[in-house]
Design a protein around this nucleic acid. Structure first.
Lengths: 122, 122
DNA sequence: TCTCATAGTTACCTTCAGGGAACCGCCACA
DNA sequence: TGTGGCGGTTCCCTGAAGGTAACTATGAGA
């Protein structure tokens, strides 16, 4: 979206929403909030993510200082990812939003069903 | 994304993020938080939105019970959109997240610049 | 009578995110 | 001497999102 690209750079919340609005980023943060994890371990636990998207997602999160990347000096070098302090605080903020979601989901679901049942929309 | 679609229906926060993660929805909620507004008025004030996307966005928001749609009995019938109570509360939640964004943006920007300057990434 | 605004809908076309698969070097184990 | 796991990178291709433009009906005003 051309207009979105323009907005990205003057609107602070868009920086955040570009991460938070992305399912893979959220799932990754969620997983890492349980503790540090390696690449292929994440891959196995985040259901349905492709190798490519995990790599891309991790690099975005690392670039934004939300996660740290540590190469372990093991035989086949392993890479451990972990939430930074900033990542932790974003996880908390997501938790807030999740609270809103959980609270309002029943109402939203109901309204959607009602809307979909309206004859003038069909 | 196939996997996302699957997740949509068991994860409550995805319902929310599918709205909140969308730039047009956020901008529309932001506009309507200032007060009720008609279709073409919104179109003029939300920079860069197409007629189609405004219609689509408004219908999504209405379906989720976040905004109300009221047809005025004027000569060329006008349509007024307004935030519902639920929409207001989502606007508040977005405000929370925006708070996080504003607070952490400087750090994020700095980390991004640092990351982009790293020789091993280039 | 022609044009404009009101609020959309529809068809068409383009773009790009993201999936899948192949490939990389390295080391361990059999 | 394979085969497998490690952590990626690169390519191609498709599907879906979204922009543009044309069309709708109605009534006001020039």
């Amino acid at each position: 979206m051309g207009a979105r690209r323009k907005l990205d750079y003057d609107c602070p919340i868009r920086d955040v929403l570009d991460r938070v609005g992305d399912a893979w980023s959220v799932l990754t943060i969620l997983e890492l909030s349980k503790g540090p994890c390696r690449f292929n371990a994440l891959r196995r636990v985040i259901d349905g993510i492709s190798q490519r998207m995990l790599a891309v997602t991790l690099r975005h999160l690392e670039r934004d200082g939300l996660i740290s990347r540590r190469v372990l000096p093991t035989a086949p070098p392993q890479v451990e990812y972990a939430l930074t302090d900033r990542g932790q605080s974003l996880h908390a903020a997501i938790g807030q939003l999740n609270g809103w979601a959980v609270e309002h989901q029943p109402g939203i679901r109901a309204d959607r069903a009602e809307y979909d049942a309206r004859p003038d929309v069909a």
